[in-house]
Nucleic acid binder design. Structure first.
Lengths: 220, 220
DNA sequence: AACAGGAATTTTGCATGCAACCAGCGCGCG
DNA sequence: CGCGCGCTGGTTGCATGCAAAATTCCTGTT
């Protein structure tokens, strides 16, 4: 059983990466059981790297690990979902402000491109590609975080924001909220181009408030 | 070889706990090598749980893990140390405000006790027990985080604040700054007792600014 | 004496084997 | 009829063995 692509990293690392991707993409549904042997067979490795991967993902908070009873994809309560916005409110506006000072023209161009593509994903409706929209959105926000260049804020955010949540929430946007959200992205690019930190931070606040409203509405 | 205390948790978990404690206490110095066999012998387990523990601690960020080259206690650059205060500024005042609303009398009493004990650790000088002071300080801030009861903010904070840093910084306090810091703790208790969120948040901001000033001064 | 090259040693990564443990089920007892 | 107990199938936790990678040290050459 030789590995086909002979990349240069350990199998544990690749297993972590694969599982993370599967969970983030929703292919492994929240709450579902993660049997070691089953995953080992599916990913064509032995149980050992799978065990290590599950342990690390548990430390990351993506997986719930109960001694002698196995691993499950972690589930998120409504309260936790709500609390997530506290963190985003506390970090992302600041990161946007920082980014306004430091971002490179190349990065703003990339952001503009992402924003356009999101617009092209179309309004709510049948042909809408939410998967794509979510992916672009993740990259958009990720880029701003990178541009903000504050590792501490970044890890704080990453430590709390669990993207599956964000993905899920896209399904709940109504037409108006989605239009606002996309407009925010455009305006954010403008603010960053103008190097106006306050503007960028303000729009980010609005952006998150809008998202939060969507979530709270549908959480009933 | 049967384990003597037959507690009810896995050896991996206990190994994680032990190593974390050793690192946080500074017994394992930052940058030092963490050989698997060596740790296995020292903790009297096989290499397997040690490996799992190192992986999880790496996911937590306490340990640096390079493929095929082993694990080291993670080191922290000055920039990372500075960025850490961004996170604390972004989260702890908010948590203090939340705590003002929700904290129980029992918890405020406990905070008051911790504050007194910190005062009793005495001023800067020869007989000063910085180890004890750091431990009490950790519990103090931890209690406020708990009382704030925002899991997302809490994990964001935990994801970025690495206690060894805090411990180290205690060595740098001069007499005035330390006195201020201790006074802040006392005043924070008062603000929480009064259920005044703005007051609590304001003091927390001052508290962190003070600590930040101490750090920046000695980082030069 | 300094250095390049290469074997020997050490250490990590992974697979496998086995014991401990949990869940589900049937049986006997109250 | 309900409840507790032991048993069995399956899963997890851990120790050990071996191969690959990396580090160290030795050796031969200039």
């Amino acid at each position: 059983m030789p590995t086909l692509h002979t990349m240069k990293s350990t199998q544990s690392d690749r297993t972590v990466e694969t599982l993370r991707e599967l969970i983030l993409r929703g292919e492994l549904v929240a709450g579902s059981r993660l049997g070691e042997s089953e995953l080992a067979a599916r990913l064509d490795v032995s149980r050992t790297p799978v065990r290590e991967a599950l342990g690390r993902l548990a430390a990351e908070g993506l997986v719930e690990l109960v001694p002698h009873r196995g691993a499950r994809v972690r589930t998120w309560s409504a309260a936790e979902l709500a609390g997530l916005f506290d963190v985003r409110q506390a970090t992302e506006p600041r990161l946007a402000a920082l980014a306004a000072d430091r971002i490179t023209p190349a990065a703003t161009d990339e952001l503009a491109r992402l924003s356009s593509r999101m617009l092209r994903c179309g309004p709510t409706g049948p042909g809408q590609d939410l998967e794509e929209l979510a992916a672009l959105n993740r990259r958009f926000h990720g880029l701003i975080v990178t541009a903000g260049d504050s590792p501490a804020l970044a890890t704080a955010l990453a430590g709390a924001v669990r993207p599956p949540v964000v993905l899920r929430n896209f399904h709940r946007y109504d037409d108006d909220s989605l239009r606002r959200s996309l407009a925010h992205h455009e305006e954010l690019v403008a603010a960053l181009r103008a190097r106006d930190s306050d503007w960028a931070a303000a729009i980010m606040v609005a952006h998150l408030r809008n998202a939060r409203a969507v979530m709270l509405r549908s959480a009933s």
